[in-house]
Design a protein around this nucleic acid. Structure first.
Length: 581
RNA sequence: GCGCCCGUAGCUCAGGGGAUAGAGCACCGGUUUCCUAAACCGGGUGUCGGAGGUUCGAAUCCUCCCGGGCGCGCCA
């Protein structure tokens, strides 16, 4: 089912090629929702630039486009205004028909990709033997939303959680576990991974003999020594349980099956270096093997390189990233690679992508995309830390979010109690936390502010959840089963109804935009507009007491469609809706 | 030094070639015999960091500058 914008686009493309010549059949009509109500519902801005291009007065060209087009069935008014704007007012019957189609569709008008991509989304990527902290929040939340959106549009999404499960730090951890006797227990239980890490690190720094043993453990581990490997695996498993618990609470779709850590690529690394060497891409620099992707310069204006093998023969993250990308393209069949990491890694990914092209591992048709995001800052505009200067743990953040949400709803709706209250607190608390992260342009740093994210006014999750709750409340009160509402009954009459209807019809194009730009905040802005539109409708248009029955049915159907879009949109963001709050 | 990113209302943020730059918060004032007032309505905010340039048209694109953040070979 083509959505409104697609239909308009098609009509305009036709009209333009008729009015301006077939040579301009490909010209973008530049359709936008109108800036102001008096300019209609949509406006097409192509005549101005196109007129200039082909040497015709823009207004005249606009008139010609209007004359050449077919509008009667979809527009009640098409007029040229100002220097050459074409303002469209959609026909109510067209709006209603589109709404009916959308409402009758289980997918609420979201198209399924005709040629699905295989997309690998790399996100979250916490470190084994460390607690997940605030630094993992954005990648986890943004990555999950992106994966959900692509999945919903019918693409084959492969989540990859590239956990840090390898490296020299495991030597000290293993040595510490042995030294303290924890290793001797039947089942390794690490109450606090962070504490373990710190304790081991302290020993490492304070005791030279311990450090020497730890370094030996690294060698043992790499050599496959049974004791070292067993303890390493225990640490990994323990960490996975911790990750899993956080993901479940956060409502993030990552599971154990999505974890493919750095260690997975270990035995591929020598092959990677060999292959690069064979292609003549590597240079020797003080004993290290270095690849110089074209177009990168260092301080002195000399080529900037990526070290793929250290002087001592060890490998680095660049090597692992190359191996992982190659694996994703060749083994997983990916034609779109998405990396959700903080913006500081911009250059690293630019170089990585260039290297992948030069090595021939990423053919031209494979899209390589880094999805960078800014930092989480405190109100003081400094990176968020605890009072003692440590990273804020994610489980602590979640606890606080839920607790604060619980207090707020207890205050606003004292009748809620028990499981209802607890469930609502979870949904609102975690929803607020996630939405705050998703609703701004992801490239910017964002200021972490509990009061703001949990506010019931403004562009927040609770506001959206409340709009949904108010709709559901109507159906409860009227004892009406939404499944029995007739999608064809919608007849938007009042301005508030019409505004809401037009907004709802934009859902498919907005979701499509997110899939293209990988910017979830566009969906947030849209949902916020849906919610404000709904609240306005709610104030102006009684539903249950609408008077005549067909109007009542129409409004019920509009309510249900709005509820479904709010719920579906929030679900794409990984945020739950609830029945009461 | 080189590179990347950011700079929009007092605060938090949308808007990324189109008409008079928008929300929320905060501040003031309204609205409830009526489906959740957890809402809605009204009131006013701006050298869009600055200067040039491109364009019929610039917050948006280009150049330079200022301010802030981050990154620049054996960590990830």
């Amino acid at each position: 089912m083509p959505h409104v914008l697609e239909i308009l686009n098609e009509r305009f493309t036709e009209a333009i090629s008729r009015a301006a010549g077939a040579a301009h059949a490909g010209a973008d009509p530049l359709l936008r929702p109108s800036a102001q109500a008096k300019f209609g519902d949509y406006q097409a801005n192509a005549a101005m630039s196109l007129g200039k291009q082909i040497g015709r007065p823009p207004r005249e060209l606009a008139e010609a486009i209007v004359q050449s087009g077919r509008w009667e069935d979809i527009c009640q008014k098409v007029e040229v205004a100002g220097p050459g704007f074409i303002n469209l007012t959609l026909r109510d019957s067209f709006i209603n028909a589109q709404l009916a189609q959308m409402a009758a569709d289980d997918g609420i008008g979201l198209p399924r990709a005709k040629r699905p991509w295989t997309v690998v989304v790399d996100y979250s990527s916490p470190n084994v033997a460390k607690q997940m902290h605030i630094g993992h929040l954005r990648s986890t939340i943004i990555g999950d939303a992106i994966a959900r959106v692509l999945e919903r549009l019918g693409h084959r999404v492969i989540r990859q959680n590239h956990v840090g499960d390898w490296g020299t730090q495991f030597g000290m951890l293993i040595e510490y576990l042995i030294e303290t006797g924890a290793a001797a227990e039947d089942e390794l239980k690490v109450a606090d991974l962070e504490a373990l890490y710190r304790a081991a690190q302290q020993r490492y720094e304070a005791d030279e003999a311990f450090a020497a043993h730890a370094r030996q453990r690294v060698v043992d581990l790499q050599a496959g020594d049974i004791t070292a490997v067993t303890l390493w695996r225990a640490l990994v498993d323990e960490s996975k349980r911790h990750f899993e618990a956080v993901y479940r609470r956060l409502g993030v779709k990552l599971t154990d099956a999505d974890i493919r850590g750095e260690s997975f690529y270990n035995d591929q690394l020598p092959g990677i270096v060999n292959a690069l060497e064979k292609r003549g891409l590597l240079h020797d620099s003080e004993g290290a093997k270095v690849l110089y992707p074209e177009g990168f310069k260092n301080t002195e204006g000399e080529p900037l390189g990526m070290i793929v093998r250290k002087r001592d023969g060890g490998y680095l993250y660049a090597t692992t990233d190359l191996a992982a990308a190659k694996y994703r393209i060749e083994q997983l069949g990916a034609d779109r690679l998405i990396y959700v990491t903080d913006s500081r890694q911009n250059q690293h990914f630019a170089m990585l992508f260039q290297a992948l092209r030069e090595a021939g591992w990423a053919p031209e048709h494979v899209r390589l995309e880094h999805v960078p995001f800014g930092m989480v800052l405190g109100k003081d505009r400094r990176p968020l830390k605890t009072r003692s200067g440590r990273n804020v743990r994610l489980d602590e953040v979640l606890d606080e979010a839920v607790e604060r949400a619980g207090q707020i709803i207890a205050e606003k709706n004292p009748e809620m109690a028990g499981d209802w209250w607890r469930d609502a607190a979870e949904a609102i608390g975690t929803g607020a936390l996630k939405y705050a992260d998703l609703s701004g342009q992801r490239i910017k740093d964002y200021i972490f502010d509990w009061d703001q994210m949990l506010a019931f006014d403004g562009n927040t999750a609770p506001y959206l959840q409340n709009a949904y709750v108010r709709i559901r409340s109507i159906f409860r009160k009227g004892e009406i089963d939404p499944a029995l509402v007739d999608p064809g009954a919608i007849a938007a009459e009042e301005p508030a109804e019409r505004d809401l209807a037009l907004k709802l019809l934009q859902f498919p194009e907005v979701v499509g935009g997110v899939a293209e730009t990988l910017e979830p905040h566009r969906l947030c802005s849209f949902l916020y507009e849906v919610a404000t539109g709904y609240h306005r409708f709610y104030e102006n248009c009684p539903v249950l007491t609408a008077g005549d029955e067909s109007r009542r049915q129409s409004r019920l159907a509009l309510c249900d469609l709005a509820a479904r879009i709010l719920a579906a949109g929030l679900d794409l963001l990984g945020i739950r809706t609830i029945e009461q709050m």
